[in-house]
Write a protein that binds this DNA or RNA. Structure first.
Lengths: 213, 213
DNA sequence: TGTGAGGGTTACAAAATGGTAACAGATGGC
DNA sequence: GCCATCTGTTACCATTTTGTAACCCTCACA
């Protein structure tokens, strides 16, 4: 199983280190400093859930869990243990790759510079503030920051609803209503005229796009 | 079995190439560059699982596996080998067609470039907009975009009604009336004179063709 | 000349989408 | 304990998108 995953991910362009039991995983993690960990719940020697807690207690590295069972309890338990996302077996390779990309995309931003600029907006990610040329800074909530972050990061491109849901809510799973609300709230903070948005454009049927002029 | 599948799929509008053993499949795959492969696990000469791995090691083409056994292990093994989906025999033709559509939908158009140009039309798939030389852009609905996408992708060729139904409605299954309507609506948006279509030509009894001049 | 299929047009109904608003639980500071 | 903030939830509305049905015209063909 580990080998197949490694194969699939390498084909998708990732650099992969595969190990075959919990102890080895714990050791490898310390040495390799991976950008992301995929953890099977059923591991020999040291179970995935416990390992997840251990890793999480010492690092923020994103973790994706693999599980055979799809029971709600499992999922909840996994997320509580600190997993960033989970995939239920059986799954298709492309699905896993998609999840990996989504998680990396989401956490990648942790490595981003503190200040993000696009158009005449400047986002201070450390302080959750947006600055607009000359005007006084506006304070954002954590969620609003993550949404704006994604939009500015892909300024000029259309972000699909799904991509944004992934980016902002990750494994917790947001729905369209939540995104709708969040966009509304963000707009009311950063748009000169919220009723006629110029910064965050709606692309009907697809998603939203940050407009640079 | 292969012939039955081929018949079913052709009736659904697909262009099918059937081969009867693993060796022939490997050869055919290289020459034909199919958009999707349906692979029986029980093949003479070279088993499906192995062939799947070989193909997968060299290409991203979507693969659907057929098998008699329904055990979880099998499913996992198949997906591990790189299959995108899995159908257990016996199955109904319509189920298979639905799977094929779903898989194609997931993988096919997603690989397309964002901008598609043909004649003096330019389709922006990210924004659901068509641009015509000099004129202001026209907004399309998601369905209209998918239809125009298919037509432009095969500019100059005649697309059969069935092929278009497949492309646009996929698993949800559209009928002729719906396509008729959609063509009408698309024409009224992109034709200079909708009453005398020049871009989207009707090929009576067969389908439609995108005309490049 | 009648008939029917194919296709265009029109009109309307159903469903989805997106913006707005109000409210409630959770959280955290004071 | 009190208050403000953040977030999720729900409801409402307008608009757009999509599906459905009816009607018409044309053309091939008996």
């Amino acid at each position: 199983m580990a080998d197949v995953l490694a194969f699939t991910l390498r084909r998708a362009g990732f650099d992969v280190l595969a190990v075959y039991d919990g102890g080895a995983a714990a050791a490898a993690w310390q040495h390799a400093h991976p950008h992301l960990i995929i953890l099977d719940l059923n591991l020999p020697h040291l179970d995935g859930m416990g390992l997840c807690r251990i890793i999480r207690s010492q690092s923020d590295v994103p973790i994706i869990m693999l599980t055979v069972r799809s029971g709600d309890a499992d999922v909840v338990q996994g997320l509580e243990a600190g997993a960033d996302d989970y995939v239920v077996k059986p799954f298709s390779p492309s699905q896993l790759v998609a999840r990996v990309r989504a998680v990396l995309r989401r956490t990648d931003t942790a490595l981003l510079p503190v200040e993000l600029a696009a158009g005449d907006l400047r986002l201070d990610r450390a302080r959750n503030e947006v600055h607009r040329l000359g005007l006084s800074p506006v304070r954002l909530t954590p969620l609003e920051t993550r949404l704006l972050e994604m939009l500015m990061l892909h300024a000029g491109q259309t972000m699909t609803t799904d991509a944004l849901l992934n980016a902002v809510w990750a494994a917790e799973g947001g729905d369209r209503a939540m995104l709708k609300q969040l966009v509304y709230r963000l707009r009311s903070k950063i748009e000169p005229d919220p009723a006629r948005p110029t910064q965050i454009e709606t692309i009907p049927g697809i998603g939203y796009a940050f407009v640079v002029r």
